[in-house]
């Protein structure tokens, strides 16, 4: 089991940055900043009335951000994986499929939807959080936290 330290202030500040980026997306492009929606619409079939220009730039920005952080602060970004490679691949497929079938993920439903007081997003968020807590708990008791 990997211990991580409780970081309320850093997490709050990071959360504010995430909220600000969601607001800027709505202000400039009139769209929801949902990563699963943005990334999945880069794939075929082509989405009608969807401008891909800013979304490609957005995705590049997200990918580059940790490198910029590393360059600016001189410290690496901590990333500790919690599953074996095969479980990572299975989980990744569910993350992709589920976020598309569920019309959104943590950013689209969890941040933007809840901020807009959307009942639809609230029901999706309660569902994915509930299943996630349950899954993590099952992994804890059946596999000691690692599969």
């Amino acid at each position: 089991m990997l211990e991580t330290s409780f970081t309320p202030l850093a997490s709050l500040f990071g959360g504010i940055l995430i909220g600000v980026s969601a607001l800027l997306t709505a202000l400039f492009y009139g769209r929801i900043m949902g990563v699963s929606g943005i990334v999945s619409r880069l794939l075929p079939p082509r989405a009608n009335g969807w401008n891909q220009q800013w979304t490609i730039a957005f995705v590049v920005g997200v990918i580059v951000a940790p490198l910029l952080w590393q360059f600016a602060t001189g410290t690496g970004v901590t990333a500790q994986f919690v599953a074996s490679p095969i479980v990572m691949m299975i989980g990744a497929f569910f993350v992709g499929l589920g976020s598309v079938m569920g019309n959104g993920c943590t950013s689209g439903h969890g941040v933007c939807g809840l901020s807009r007081l959307s009942l639809r997003s609230l029901s999706a968020t309660v569902t994915f959080m509930g299943v996630a807590f349950l899954t993590a708990t099952v992994i804890r008791f059946l596999f000691q936290g690692y599969i």
Partner: peptide, 17 residues
């Protein structure tokens, strides 16, 4: 779909962002 996403998210600790 949301449930499937929650399952994958908990397995890996990683969401799309």
């Amino acid at each position: 779909g949301a449930a499937a996403f929650g399952f994958g998210w908990a397995l890996t600790g990683i969401c799309p962002g």
